[in-house]
Design a protein around this nucleic acid. Structure first.
Length: 486
RNA sequence: CGGGGCGUGGCGCAGUCCGGUAGCGCACCUGCUUUGGGAGCAGGGGGUCGCCGGUUCGAAUCCGGCCGCCCCGACCA
Protein backbone atom coordinates (compact mmCIF):
# COMPACT_ATOMS: atom_id res chain seq x y z
CA UNK A 1 0.00 0.00 0.00
CA UNK A 2 2.83 2.33 0.81
CA UNK A 3 4.08 1.79 -2.70
CA UNK A 4 0.74 2.61 -4.27
CA UNK A 5 0.32 6.02 -2.73
CA UNK A 6 3.85 7.35 -2.81
CA UNK A 7 4.27 10.65 -4.58
CA UNK A 8 6.54 10.97 -7.57
CA UNK A 9 9.65 12.71 -6.18
CA UNK A 10 10.03 16.36 -7.13
CA UNK A 11 13.45 15.71 -8.56
CA UNK A 12 12.10 13.05 -10.89
CA UNK A 13 9.11 14.89 -12.36
CA UNK A 14 8.00 18.11 -10.73
CA UNK A 15 4.81 18.39 -12.77
CA UNK A 16 3.74 14.89 -11.85
CA UNK A 17 4.52 15.64 -8.21
CA UNK A 18 2.40 18.78 -8.39
CA UNK A 19 -0.59 17.08 -9.97
CA UNK A 20 -0.44 14.20 -7.50
CA UNK A 21 -0.27 16.51 -4.51
CA UNK A 22 -3.31 18.43 -5.69
CA UNK A 23 -5.22 15.15 -5.85
CA UNK A 24 -3.83 13.40 -2.81
CA UNK A 25 -3.99 16.35 -0.43
CA UNK A 26 -7.61 16.75 -1.58
CA UNK A 27 -7.09 20.32 -2.74
CA UNK A 28 -8.87 20.18 -6.08
CA UNK A 29 -10.22 17.91 -8.76
CA UNK A 30 -11.29 18.02 -12.38
CA UNK A 31 -14.66 19.15 -13.62
CA UNK A 32 -16.67 18.10 -16.65
CA UNK A 33 -15.69 21.34 -18.38
CA UNK A 34 -12.20 21.70 -19.77
CA UNK A 35 -9.79 23.76 -17.79
CA UNK A 36 -12.17 24.24 -14.89
CA UNK A 37 -11.38 22.82 -11.48
CA UNK A 38 -13.37 21.86 -8.45
CA UNK A 39 -11.82 23.26 -5.29
CA UNK A 40 -12.36 20.72 -2.54
CA UNK A 41 -13.04 21.71 1.07
CA UNK A 42 -9.44 21.34 2.25
CA UNK A 43 -8.13 23.45 -0.62
CA UNK A 44 -10.92 25.97 -0.32
CA UNK A 45 -10.18 26.40 3.39
CA UNK A 46 -6.66 27.48 2.51
CA UNK A 47 -8.09 30.00 0.05
CA UNK A 48 -10.55 31.24 2.69
CA UNK A 49 -7.71 31.81 5.13
CA UNK A 50 -5.83 33.71 2.41
CA UNK A 51 -8.94 35.78 1.71
CA UNK A 52 -9.50 36.62 5.37
CA UNK A 53 -5.93 37.79 5.81
CA UNK A 54 -5.85 39.82 2.59
CA UNK A 55 -9.27 41.29 3.17
CA UNK A 56 -8.21 42.60 6.56
CA UNK A 57 -5.15 44.19 4.96
CA UNK A 58 -7.29 45.84 2.27
CA UNK A 59 -9.70 47.23 4.85
CA UNK A 60 -6.84 48.47 6.99
CA UNK A 61 -5.62 50.46 3.98
CA UNK A 62 -9.02 52.04 3.47
CA UNK A 63 -10.61 49.87 0.79
CA UNK A 64 -14.25 48.81 0.67
CA UNK A 65 -15.67 45.69 -0.89
CA UNK A 66 -18.37 45.85 -3.54
CA UNK A 67 -19.66 43.45 -6.15
CA UNK A 68 -20.13 44.00 -9.86
CA UNK A 69 -21.82 41.68 -12.35
CA UNK A 70 -20.36 38.63 -14.02
CA UNK A 71 -21.45 39.81 -17.48
CA UNK A 72 -20.39 42.89 -19.33
CA UNK A 73 -21.64 44.13 -22.68
CA UNK A 74 -19.19 43.39 -25.47
CA UNK A 75 -19.28 47.05 -26.40
CA UNK A 76 -17.95 48.00 -22.94
CA UNK A 77 -14.90 45.78 -23.29
CA UNK A 78 -14.22 47.35 -26.66
CA UNK A 79 -13.98 50.88 -25.35
CA UNK A 80 -10.35 50.73 -24.29
CA UNK A 81 -8.35 49.76 -27.36
CA UNK A 82 -5.38 47.99 -25.79
CA UNK A 83 -7.59 46.37 -23.19
CA UNK A 84 -9.83 44.70 -25.75
CA UNK A 85 -6.89 43.69 -27.86
CA UNK A 86 -5.34 42.02 -24.85
CA UNK A 87 -8.40 40.26 -23.52
CA UNK A 88 -10.75 39.63 -26.45
CA UNK A 89 -8.89 36.50 -27.62
CA UNK A 90 -9.40 34.83 -24.27
CA UNK A 91 -12.97 35.73 -23.40
CA UNK A 92 -16.04 33.55 -23.20
CA UNK A 93 -19.02 35.22 -24.85
CA UNK A 94 -22.69 34.50 -24.24
CA UNK A 95 -24.77 34.95 -27.37
CA UNK A 96 -28.00 33.26 -26.32
CA UNK A 97 -30.21 33.74 -23.30
CA UNK A 98 -33.72 32.65 -22.45
CA UNK A 99 -33.79 30.62 -25.62
CA UNK A 100 -33.24 33.64 -27.84
CA UNK A 101 -30.33 35.20 -29.63
CA UNK A 102 -29.17 38.23 -27.61
CA UNK A 103 -29.20 41.66 -29.21
CA UNK A 104 -25.74 42.31 -27.86
CA UNK A 105 -23.36 39.53 -26.86
CA UNK A 106 -22.34 39.42 -23.20
CA UNK A 107 -18.75 38.84 -22.21
CA UNK A 108 -18.03 36.79 -19.11
CA UNK A 109 -15.64 39.10 -17.30
CA UNK A 110 -11.94 38.32 -17.74
CA UNK A 111 -11.36 41.28 -15.36
CA UNK A 112 -13.81 43.97 -14.38
CA UNK A 113 -12.48 47.40 -15.37
CA UNK A 114 -14.95 47.60 -18.23
CA UNK A 115 -17.97 46.98 -16.05
CA UNK A 116 -16.87 48.86 -12.95
CA UNK A 117 -15.81 52.20 -14.40
CA UNK A 118 -18.93 53.01 -16.46
CA UNK A 119 -20.94 52.49 -13.28
CA UNK A 120 -18.63 54.11 -10.75
CA UNK A 121 -18.32 57.10 -13.06
CA UNK A 122 -21.72 58.15 -11.74
CA UNK A 123 -20.56 57.86 -8.13
CA UNK A 124 -17.78 60.34 -8.73
CA UNK A 125 -18.70 63.99 -9.20
CA UNK A 126 -16.19 65.95 -7.23
CA UNK A 127 -12.63 65.72 -5.97
CA UNK A 128 -14.36 65.21 -2.61
CA UNK A 129 -15.49 61.78 -3.85
CA UNK A 130 -11.89 60.76 -4.35
CA UNK A 131 -10.04 58.61 -3.78
CA UNK A 132 -12.52 55.84 -4.58
CA UNK A 133 -10.99 52.68 -3.10
CA UNK A 134 -12.84 49.54 -4.14
CA UNK A 135 -12.17 45.84 -4.08
CA UNK A 136 -14.19 42.86 -5.15
CA UNK A 137 -13.88 39.14 -4.52
CA UNK A 138 -15.05 37.41 -7.65
CA UNK A 139 -14.57 34.74 -10.23
CA UNK A 140 -13.32 35.54 -13.71
CA UNK A 141 -12.99 33.54 -16.91
CA UNK A 142 -10.11 33.50 -19.34
CA UNK A 143 -10.14 30.97 -22.13
CA UNK A 144 -6.58 29.78 -21.61
CA UNK A 145 -5.17 27.27 -24.04
CA UNK A 146 -3.31 25.28 -21.47
CA UNK A 147 -4.48 24.91 -17.91
CA UNK A 148 -3.05 23.55 -14.68
CA UNK A 149 -4.84 23.26 -11.34
CA UNK A 150 -4.63 26.54 -9.41
CA UNK A 151 -1.84 27.95 -11.60
CA UNK A 152 -3.96 28.55 -14.67
CA UNK A 153 -7.59 27.54 -14.90
CA UNK A 154 -10.32 28.71 -17.23
CA UNK A 155 -12.34 30.06 -14.34
CA UNK A 156 -10.47 31.30 -11.31
CA UNK A 157 -11.21 33.07 -8.06
CA UNK A 158 -9.46 36.28 -7.21
CA UNK A 159 -9.76 39.70 -5.76
CA UNK A 160 -9.49 42.75 -7.94
CA UNK A 161 -8.87 46.15 -6.47
CA UNK A 162 -10.03 49.16 -8.47
CA UNK A 163 -9.27 52.68 -7.37
CA UNK A 164 -9.65 56.20 -8.70
CA UNK A 165 -7.58 59.19 -7.67
CA UNK A 166 -7.38 62.89 -8.32
CA UNK A 167 -3.72 62.90 -9.27
CA UNK A 168 -1.23 60.71 -11.05
CA UNK A 169 1.10 60.83 -8.06
CA UNK A 170 -1.58 59.56 -5.73
CA UNK A 171 -2.59 56.75 -8.09
CA UNK A 172 1.00 55.68 -8.52
CA UNK A 173 1.42 55.75 -4.75
CA UNK A 174 -1.62 53.47 -4.45
CA UNK A 175 -0.20 51.09 -7.07
CA UNK A 176 3.03 50.90 -5.10
CA UNK A 177 1.31 50.64 -1.76
CA UNK A 178 -0.81 47.67 -2.80
CA UNK A 179 2.22 45.91 -4.21
CA UNK A 180 3.66 46.33 -0.73
CA UNK A 181 0.52 44.87 0.83
CA UNK A 182 0.86 41.84 -1.43
CA UNK A 183 4.48 41.45 -0.57
CA UNK A 184 3.77 41.61 3.16
CA UNK A 185 1.00 39.04 2.81
CA UNK A 186 3.14 36.68 0.77
CA UNK A 187 6.11 36.90 3.11
CA UNK A 188 4.32 37.05 6.46
CA UNK A 189 1.33 34.82 5.82
CA UNK A 190 2.39 32.54 2.98
CA UNK A 191 6.04 32.40 4.11
CA UNK A 192 6.82 32.90 0.42
CA UNK A 193 9.52 35.49 -0.25
CA UNK A 194 9.05 37.62 -3.34
CA UNK A 195 11.01 40.03 -5.47
CA UNK A 196 9.10 43.18 -6.33
CA UNK A 197 9.63 45.33 -9.36
CA UNK A 198 8.22 46.69 -12.56
CA UNK A 199 7.26 44.71 -15.64
CA UNK A 200 8.77 45.55 -18.99
CA UNK A 201 6.43 47.15 -21.56
CA UNK A 202 5.92 43.79 -23.28
CA UNK A 203 4.63 42.19 -20.10
CA UNK A 204 2.28 44.96 -19.08
CA UNK A 205 -1.40 44.51 -18.32
CA UNK A 206 -3.49 45.36 -21.37
CA UNK A 207 -4.35 49.03 -21.05
CA UNK A 208 -1.95 49.83 -18.19
CA UNK A 209 0.74 52.48 -18.27
CA UNK A 210 2.84 50.67 -15.72
CA UNK A 211 2.61 47.21 -14.23
CA UNK A 212 4.33 46.08 -11.05
CA UNK A 213 4.55 42.53 -9.81
CA UNK A 214 5.73 40.21 -7.10
CA UNK A 215 7.75 37.23 -8.31
CA UNK A 216 8.46 34.10 -6.30
CA UNK A 217 10.82 31.23 -7.04
CA UNK A 218 9.28 27.79 -6.94
CA UNK A 219 11.10 24.64 -5.85
CA UNK A 220 11.71 23.60 -9.44
CA UNK A 221 13.52 26.92 -9.90
CA UNK A 222 10.87 28.45 -12.11
CA UNK A 223 9.36 31.82 -11.34
CA UNK A 224 5.74 32.43 -10.46
CA UNK A 225 4.10 35.81 -10.91
CA UNK A 226 2.20 35.94 -7.67
CA UNK A 227 0.52 39.32 -7.72
CA UNK A 228 0.24 42.35 -9.97
CA UNK A 229 -0.55 46.00 -9.39
CA UNK A 230 -1.25 48.34 -12.30
CA UNK A 231 -1.08 52.05 -12.76
CA UNK A 232 -3.67 52.78 -15.44
CA UNK A 233 -3.15 56.51 -15.79
CA UNK A 234 -6.20 58.08 -17.37
CA UNK A 235 -6.62 55.44 -20.08
CA UNK A 236 -9.71 53.88 -18.59
CA UNK A 237 -11.08 57.17 -17.27
CA UNK A 238 -11.06 58.54 -20.80
CA UNK A 239 -12.56 55.37 -22.26
CA UNK A 240 -15.35 55.21 -19.70
CA UNK A 241 -15.85 58.94 -19.07
CA UNK A 242 -14.84 58.99 -15.43
CA UNK A 243 -14.52 62.71 -14.76
CA UNK A 244 -14.56 64.82 -11.63
CA UNK A 245 -14.59 68.48 -10.76
CA UNK A 246 -11.40 69.74 -9.17
CA UNK A 247 -11.03 72.06 -6.22
CA UNK A 248 -10.46 74.84 -8.72
CA UNK A 249 -13.67 74.05 -10.55
CA UNK A 250 -12.01 72.46 -13.57
CA UNK A 251 -12.94 69.05 -15.01
CA UNK A 252 -10.41 66.27 -15.18
CA UNK A 253 -10.29 62.54 -15.71
CA UNK A 254 -9.48 60.40 -12.69
CA UNK A 255 -6.31 58.35 -12.44
CA UNK A 256 -6.93 54.64 -11.93
CA UNK A 257 -5.23 51.60 -10.51
CA UNK A 258 -6.10 47.94 -10.45
CA UNK A 259 -4.44 45.08 -8.61
CA UNK A 260 -5.15 41.43 -8.08
CA UNK A 261 -4.14 38.08 -6.68
CA UNK A 262 -5.87 34.82 -7.40
CA UNK A 263 -6.24 31.18 -6.43
CA UNK A 264 -2.92 30.83 -8.25
CA UNK A 265 -1.46 31.65 -4.83
CA UNK A 266 -2.52 28.21 -3.65
CA UNK A 267 -0.33 26.79 -6.41
CA UNK A 268 2.48 29.06 -5.26
CA UNK A 269 2.09 27.82 -1.74
CA UNK A 270 2.25 24.20 -2.86
CA UNK A 271 5.37 24.77 -4.96
CA UNK A 272 7.15 26.93 -2.37
CA UNK A 273 6.93 24.58 0.60
CA UNK A 274 5.84 21.11 -0.56
CA UNK A 275 8.27 18.20 -0.42
CA UNK A 276 8.39 14.53 -1.43
CA UNK A 277 6.20 13.61 1.54
CA UNK A 278 3.48 15.97 0.37
CA UNK A 279 2.09 19.39 1.04
CA UNK A 280 3.60 21.68 3.67
CA UNK A 281 1.22 24.43 4.73
CA UNK A 282 2.55 27.43 6.63
CA UNK A 283 0.70 27.61 9.97
CA UNK A 284 -1.13 30.84 9.26
CA UNK A 285 -2.87 29.23 6.30
CA UNK A 286 -3.21 25.73 7.67
CA UNK A 287 -6.79 24.46 7.92
CA UNK A 288 -5.56 22.49 10.92
CA UNK A 289 -2.50 23.90 12.64
CA UNK A 290 -2.33 20.94 15.02
CA UNK A 291 -3.79 17.51 14.49
CA UNK A 292 -4.02 15.33 17.56
CA UNK A 293 -3.69 11.62 16.82
CA UNK A 294 -4.92 9.56 19.74
CA UNK A 295 -3.49 6.08 20.18
CA UNK A 296 -5.21 3.27 22.05
CA UNK A 297 -5.39 -0.48 22.34
CA UNK A 298 -8.71 -1.09 24.05
CA UNK A 299 -11.91 0.70 24.92
CA UNK A 300 -10.71 1.91 28.33
CA UNK A 301 -7.61 3.42 26.80
CA UNK A 302 -9.62 4.93 23.98
CA UNK A 303 -11.82 6.83 26.42
CA UNK A 304 -8.86 8.03 28.48
CA UNK A 305 -6.80 9.11 25.52
CA UNK A 306 -9.68 10.88 23.77
CA UNK A 307 -10.41 12.73 26.98
CA UNK A 308 -6.86 13.98 27.12
CA UNK A 309 -6.97 14.92 23.43
CA UNK A 310 -10.20 16.84 23.83
CA UNK A 311 -8.87 18.59 26.92
CA UNK A 312 -5.86 19.82 24.98
CA UNK A 313 -7.97 20.87 22.00
CA UNK A 314 -10.44 22.89 24.04
CA UNK A 315 -7.72 24.70 25.99
CA UNK A 316 -5.90 25.63 22.78
CA UNK A 317 -9.03 26.35 20.72
CA UNK A 318 -8.83 30.10 21.28
CA UNK A 319 -5.28 30.26 19.95
CA UNK A 320 -4.86 27.44 17.48
CA UNK A 321 -6.89 25.51 14.94
CA UNK A 322 -6.70 22.05 16.50
CA UNK A 323 -8.29 18.92 15.06
CA UNK A 324 -8.62 15.66 16.96
CA UNK A 325 -8.51 12.73 14.56
CA UNK A 326 -10.65 10.26 16.49
CA UNK A 327 -11.38 7.95 13.54
CA UNK A 328 -11.25 4.30 14.53
CA UNK A 329 -11.04 3.05 10.97
CA UNK A 330 -7.37 3.88 10.57
CA UNK A 331 -4.43 2.96 12.72
CA UNK A 332 -2.14 5.74 13.94
CA UNK A 333 0.52 5.19 11.31
CA UNK A 334 -1.98 5.67 8.51
CA UNK A 335 -3.13 8.93 10.09
CA UNK A 336 0.45 10.14 10.38
CA UNK A 337 0.97 9.67 6.66
CA UNK A 338 -2.31 11.28 5.75
CA UNK A 339 -1.72 14.44 7.76
CA UNK A 340 1.84 14.70 6.54
CA UNK A 341 0.57 14.53 2.99
CA UNK A 342 -1.87 17.31 3.80
CA UNK A 343 0.88 19.44 5.25
CA UNK A 344 -0.36 19.91 8.82
CA UNK A 345 2.38 21.87 10.64
CA UNK A 346 2.24 19.98 13.92
CA UNK A 347 1.09 16.54 14.91
CA UNK A 348 0.43 15.73 18.54
CA UNK A 349 0.37 12.08 19.57
CA UNK A 350 -1.36 11.07 22.76
CA UNK A 351 -1.23 7.40 23.77
CA UNK A 352 -1.73 5.47 26.99
CA UNK A 353 1.90 5.96 27.99
CA UNK A 354 1.56 9.70 27.52
CA UNK A 355 -1.62 9.91 29.53
CA UNK A 356 0.10 8.00 32.36
CA UNK A 357 3.02 10.45 32.28
CA UNK A 358 0.77 13.48 31.72
CA UNK A 359 2.64 14.33 28.56
CA UNK A 360 2.09 14.59 24.80
CA UNK A 361 4.38 14.02 21.83
CA UNK A 362 4.68 16.90 19.37
CA UNK A 363 6.07 16.16 15.90
CA UNK A 364 6.79 18.82 13.29
CA UNK A 365 5.98 18.53 9.62
CA UNK A 366 8.91 20.78 8.76
CA UNK A 367 12.13 20.66 10.75
CA UNK A 368 15.03 22.99 10.00
CA UNK A 369 18.65 22.05 10.71
CA UNK A 370 19.38 21.99 14.41
CA UNK A 371 15.79 21.57 15.58
CA UNK A 372 14.23 18.46 17.06
CA UNK A 373 11.54 16.92 14.93
CA UNK A 374 9.89 15.25 17.91
CA UNK A 375 9.44 16.67 21.39
CA UNK A 376 7.90 15.30 24.57
CA UNK A 377 5.94 17.98 26.39
CA UNK A 378 4.15 17.92 29.73
CA UNK A 379 0.42 18.58 29.35
CA UNK A 380 0.66 22.02 30.95
CA UNK A 381 3.86 22.77 29.08
CA UNK A 382 2.23 21.86 25.78
CA UNK A 383 -0.42 24.51 26.24
CA UNK A 384 2.26 27.18 26.47
CA UNK A 385 4.70 25.71 23.96
CA UNK A 386 2.50 24.66 21.05
CA UNK A 387 1.39 28.17 20.05
CA UNK A 388 5.00 29.35 20.16
CA UNK A 389 6.12 26.35 18.16
CA UNK A 390 3.51 27.09 15.51
CA UNK A 391 4.77 30.67 15.26
CA UNK A 392 8.35 29.45 15.06
CA UNK A 393 7.50 27.07 12.23
CA UNK A 394 5.92 29.92 10.30
CA UNK A 395 9.15 31.91 10.55
CA UNK A 396 11.35 28.90 9.81
CA UNK A 397 9.43 28.10 6.65
CA UNK A 398 9.84 31.66 5.46
CA UNK A 399 13.56 31.61 6.22
CA UNK A 400 14.04 28.28 4.50
CA UNK A 401 12.20 29.51 1.42
CA UNK A 402 14.31 32.64 1.32
CA UNK A 403 17.52 30.66 1.67
CA UNK A 404 16.43 28.35 -1.12
CA UNK A 405 15.69 31.31 -3.35
CA UNK A 406 19.04 32.93 -2.62
CA UNK A 407 20.84 29.65 -3.24
CA UNK A 408 19.31 29.60 -6.71
CA UNK A 409 19.85 33.25 -7.57
CA UNK A 410 22.95 34.54 -9.31
CA UNK A 411 24.22 38.07 -9.79
CA UNK A 412 26.97 39.53 -11.88
CA UNK A 413 26.40 37.13 -14.73
CA UNK A 414 27.16 38.87 -18.02
CA UNK A 415 28.02 36.03 -20.38
CA UNK A 416 25.09 35.02 -22.56
CA UNK A 417 26.40 31.51 -23.15
CA UNK A 418 26.62 30.86 -19.41
CA UNK A 419 23.13 32.26 -19.03
CA UNK A 420 21.79 29.88 -21.66
CA UNK A 421 23.44 26.91 -19.99
CA UNK A 422 22.04 27.94 -16.65
CA UNK A 423 18.50 28.35 -17.94
CA UNK A 424 18.64 25.01 -19.67
CA UNK A 425 20.07 23.42 -16.54
CA UNK A 426 19.26 24.30 -12.96
CA UNK A 427 17.28 27.47 -13.73
CA UNK A 428 16.59 29.93 -10.94
CA UNK A 429 16.81 33.71 -10.80
CA UNK A 430 19.45 35.58 -12.77
CA UNK A 431 20.04 39.27 -12.07
CA UNK A 432 21.68 40.83 -15.10
CA UNK A 433 21.78 43.92 -17.25
CA UNK A 434 19.25 44.75 -19.96
CA UNK A 435 19.65 47.35 -22.68
CA UNK A 436 15.94 48.10 -22.75
CA UNK A 437 15.19 46.65 -26.19
CA UNK A 438 12.31 44.28 -26.79
CA UNK A 439 14.51 42.47 -29.29
CA UNK A 440 16.89 41.29 -26.56
CA UNK A 441 13.97 40.23 -24.38
CA UNK A 442 12.52 38.27 -27.27
CA UNK A 443 15.85 36.68 -28.19
CA UNK A 444 16.42 35.46 -24.65
CA UNK A 445 12.94 33.99 -24.59
CA UNK A 446 13.49 32.31 -27.93
CA UNK A 447 16.85 30.86 -26.91
CA UNK A 448 16.18 29.86 -23.32
CA UNK A 449 12.49 30.21 -22.49
CA UNK A 450 13.49 32.75 -19.85
CA UNK A 451 11.86 36.16 -19.65
CA UNK A 452 12.40 39.30 -17.69
CA UNK A 453 10.22 38.78 -14.66
CA UNK A 454 10.66 42.29 -13.34
CA UNK A 455 13.07 45.17 -13.29
CA UNK A 456 13.67 44.73 -9.58
CA UNK A 457 13.03 47.43 -7.03
CA UNK A 458 16.06 49.08 -5.50
CA UNK A 459 16.45 46.83 -2.47
CA UNK A 460 16.79 43.79 -4.73
CA UNK A 461 19.31 45.31 -7.11
CA UNK A 462 22.97 44.32 -7.29
CA UNK A 463 25.95 46.34 -6.19
CA UNK A 464 27.72 47.12 -8.43
CA UNK A 465 24.91 47.36 -10.92
CA UNK A 466 25.43 45.51 -14.19
CA UNK A 467 27.04 47.60 -16.92
CA UNK A 468 26.11 45.65 -20.02
CA UNK A 469 23.07 43.94 -21.50
CA UNK A 470 23.13 40.21 -20.90
CA UNK A 471 21.97 39.52 -24.44
CA UNK A 472 23.58 42.09 -26.75
CA UNK A 473 26.42 43.42 -24.61
CA UNK A 474 25.44 47.04 -25.19
CA UNK A 475 25.21 49.44 -22.27
CA UNK A 476 22.61 48.34 -19.73
CA UNK A 477 19.63 50.62 -19.17
CA UNK A 478 18.45 48.67 -16.14
CA UNK A 479 19.03 45.58 -14.09
CA UNK A 480 16.57 42.80 -14.87
CA UNK A 481 15.51 39.64 -13.08
CA UNK A 482 15.48 36.81 -15.62
CA UNK A 483 13.91 33.41 -15.13
CA UNK A 484 11.81 30.78 -16.74
CA UNK A 485 8.28 31.26 -15.49
CA UNK A 486 4.97 29.52 -15.09
C1' C B 1 -3.73 25.72 -31.63
C1' G B 2 0.97 22.34 -33.30
C1' G B 3 3.89 17.73 -31.64
C1' G B 4 3.76 13.33 -28.32
C1' G B 5 1.17 10.10 -24.80
C1' C B 6 -3.41 8.37 -22.63
C1' G B 7 -9.01 7.52 -21.59
C1' U B 8 -11.55 0.31 -18.51
C1' G B 9 -15.68 0.67 -10.66
C1' G B 10 -13.42 6.43 -6.28
C1' C B 11 -7.66 5.89 -7.42
C1' G B 12 -3.74 3.03 -10.07
C1' C B 13 -3.67 -0.62 -13.82
C1' A B 14 -4.20 -5.56 -16.91
C1' G B 15 -7.15 -7.17 -20.92
C1' U B 16 -7.16 -4.39 -27.10
C1' C B 17 -2.36 -6.78 -31.50
C1' C B 18 -5.45 -12.12 -32.54
C1' G B 19 -13.72 -9.84 -31.37
C1' G B 20 -16.97 -14.51 -27.58
C1' U B 21 -20.11 -10.38 -23.07
C1' A B 22 -14.71 -7.62 -17.76
C1' G B 23 -10.42 -8.68 -14.08
C1' C B 24 -6.39 -7.28 -10.39
C1' G B 25 -4.33 -4.01 -6.36
C1' C B 26 -5.80 -0.02 -3.25
C1' A B 27 -10.18 2.33 -1.45
C1' C B 28 -15.46 1.20 0.23
C1' C B 29 -19.39 -1.96 3.27
C1' U B 30 -20.26 -6.06 7.30
C1' G B 31 -18.10 -9.09 11.20
C1' C B 32 -14.13 -10.56 14.40
C1' U B 33 -9.21 -9.65 15.88
C1' U B 34 -6.01 -5.22 15.76
C1' U B 35 -4.10 0.10 16.77
C1' G B 36 3.17 4.10 19.46
C1' G B 37 4.76 4.87 11.34
C1' G B 38 0.58 3.04 5.77
C1' A B 39 -3.21 -3.81 10.14
C1' G B 40 -5.01 -9.22 9.40
C1' C B 41 -8.69 -12.80 8.19
C1' A B 42 -13.58 -13.92 6.27
C1' G B 43 -17.72 -12.28 3.62
C1' G B 44 -19.78 -8.35 0.34
C1' G B 45 -21.25 -3.96 -2.91
C1' G B 46 -19.91 -1.09 -7.03
C1' G B 47 -18.10 -0.53 -14.00
C1' U B 48 -23.81 0.98 -20.46
C1' C B 49 -14.90 -0.22 -20.79
C1' G B 50 -14.77 8.65 -22.62
C1' C B 51 -18.99 9.83 -26.33
C1' C B 52 -21.55 9.03 -31.11
C1' G B 53 -21.94 6.17 -35.34
C1' G B 54 -20.39 1.88 -38.40
C1' U B 55 -18.75 -3.45 -39.38
C1' U B 56 -20.29 -8.22 -37.20
C1' C B 57 -24.43 -13.59 -35.05
C1' G B 58 -21.45 -11.06 -31.27
C1' A B 59 -17.29 -5.05 -29.99
C1' A B 60 -13.45 -2.76 -24.17
C1' U B 61 -11.13 -5.15 -28.54
C1' C B 62 -11.90 -3.68 -35.63
C1' C B 63 -13.24 1.13 -38.65
C1' G B 64 -14.82 6.54 -38.76
C1' G B 65 -15.86 11.00 -36.21
C1' C B 66 -15.98 13.76 -31.76
C1' C B 67 -14.79 14.94 -26.53
C1' G B 68 -11.56 15.02 -22.43
C1' C B 69 -6.91 14.48 -19.65
C1' C B 70 -1.40 14.60 -19.22
C1' C B 71 3.58 16.23 -21.14
C1' C B 72 6.41 19.70 -24.52
C1' G B 73 5.82 24.52 -27.30
C1' A B 74 3.15 29.43 -28.67
C1' C B 75 -0.97 32.80 -25.20
C1' C B 76 -1.69 34.04 -20.09
C1' A B 77 -3.00 35.58 -12.91
Amino acid sequence: MAEDTRLTPQSEDFSAWYNEIVQQAELAGHSPVRGCMVIRPYGYRIWELMQADLDARFKRTGHQNAYFPLFLPLSALEKEAEHVEGFAPETAVVTRGGGKELEEPLVVRPTSEAIIWPIVADWIQSYRDLPMLLNQWANVVRWELRTRPFLRTTEFLWQEGHTAHATAEEALEETRSMLGVYRAFMEETMAMPVVTGEKTPGERFAGAERTFATEALMRDNRALQAGTSHYLGQNFARAFEVQFQTEEGEHDYVFNTSWGVSTRLVGGLIMTHGDDQGLVVPPRLAPHQVVVVPIWKDEDQRVLVLEAAERLRSVLAGELRVHVDARDTLNPGAKFYEWERKGVPLRVEIGPRDVARQQVVAVRRFTPEGEERKRFLGEAEAIAVLPRLVDAIQAELRDAARQRREAHSVRGLDDYGTFRERMEGEGGFVYAGWCGSEACEAKAKEDTGATIRVLPDEEFRSDPSPGRCLVCGEAAAAEALWARAY
